[in-house]
């Protein structure tokens, strides 16, 4: 009976604001007990053929962060006084952008007199995915420009069962895009995905799976070496290369996810991270799940791609379980493994 009473007369709601800027997106999101009140974001876009450098990215974030913050508050219809906790990305990520965002978070926390919370970026993706999809205990494929991990929860940790032994899948895609000068607007991955739709010819590429781990550096160096030759000789089109690269690297990702599921006897998959909004990857994962009688959970670009709400959501979970980060501990770190965090908010 008690729980029903709680349902009708809830305690005051908890509002968390989250700051994210570990790579080339800067986002501020506000969450109130599982509800996304606002989640504005900006992306630093570089010209075709160029990646984003830490100092330029930080400069971009500095230029827009206060505008994004203002948008977040206005859209949510909240005043600083309504916020209960300020969460920010502690890491992993690029040093300069992380510092930029952490400074703003620390400043507003002190101005508003609110507690701070340093959040692991990867955990932010996982918790946002769980919130949006309602997946209860999924095997998580976390794929982005900097990460490729297969994660499952066990005994208070998000444990990494499989990962890349060299570069991340998103990094492989981004660098391929630079080789054949695909636009970075809105993102190289998105443009590869669109071009792949018109590719017809499958070009054989190296396929490297080692147990539950994968390797992409061999594929990248192969395609870096061969792409322009194949294109200029007319052996295949740029679309064919996009298609073949996606088919190959996504098959590897689905395979290691399936292996981890078999290993953990899991019947749920959640895809998170920027590469996770690729519909072809979602489609392939869906087919695998169907074959195993498992369920696929995925989100769209609003939540797959780095955003502030995901930091707010992980921060909300941490805050509810009693955690806060003291000012003197509110540093950032470029390396911060998913399995370093003790998950205090799950059984």
């Amino acid at each position: 009976m008690q729980s029903i009473l709680c349902f009708f007369f809830p305690a005051t709601m908890t509002v968390v604001i989250g700051f994210e800027g570990s790579a080339n997106k800067i986002g501020v999101g506000i969450i109130r007990d599982g509800e996304v009140l606002s989640n504005p974001r900006r992306t630093y876009i570089t010209p075709p053929g160029q990646g984003f450098m830490p100092s330029d990215t930080a400069r971009h974030h500095r230029a827009v962060i206060l505008t994004v913050l203002k948008e977040a508050l206005e859209e949510a219809g909240l005043k600083p006084a309504d916020i209960d906790c300020v969460a920010y990305t502690k890491g992993p990520g690029m040093g300069a952008p992380l510092v930029t965002v952490a400074i703003v978070a620390r400043t507003v926390a002190q101005l508003w007199g609110k507690p701070l919370l340093g959040v692991n970026h990867c955990i932010g993706h996982i918790e946002m995915g769980r919130l949006i999809t309602k997946a209860s205990n999924p095997t998580v494929l976390y794929v982005s420009g900097g990460n490729t991990q297969v994660i499952a929860y066990s005994e208070r940790r998000y444990r990494i069962f499989g990962e890349t032994i060299d570069i991340a899948v998103g990094n492989c895609l981004d660098r391929f895009a630079r080789v054949i000068k695909i636009s970075n607007d809105p993102s190289p991955g998105y443009n590869i995905e669109q071009m792949a739709k018109t590719g017809t010819q499958y070009v054989e590429l190296p396929y490297t799976v080692k147990g539950m781990d994968v390797s992409f550096s061999g594929i990248l160096s192969y395609i870096e070496e061969a792409a322009n030759k194949m294109l200029s000789s007319g052996q295949c089109t740029a679309a064919d290369l996009c298609f073949s690269l996606q088919e190959t690297v996504f098959a590897m990702l689905v395979e290691i996810t399936e292996r981890a599921m078999a290993h953990c006897s899991s019947q749920e998959v959640l895809i998170v991270g920027g590469v996770g909004c690729n519909l072809r990857l979602q489609e392939m994962m869906g087919v695998m799940c169907e074959e195993r009688g498992a369920k696929l959970f995925a989100t769209d670009d609003r939540f797959c791609i780095d955003n502030g709400a995901m930091i707010a959501q992980a921060g909300w979970e941490m805050f509810q379980s009693g955690q806060v980060t003291e000012l003197e501990d509110s540093w950032i770190t470029q390396r911060y493994r998913t399995d370093e965090v003790e998950v205090t908010w799950r059984d």
């Binding site: 570990s22 992993p92 990520g93 420009g145 900097g146 990460n147 990962e163």
Partner: peptide
């Protein structure tokens, strides 16, 4: 070496 690669990876993004 391989272990170190895992720990040193910056994991941006």
């Amino acid at each position: 070496e391989v272990r170190l690669r895992g720990r040193k990876r910056s994991m941006v993004g």
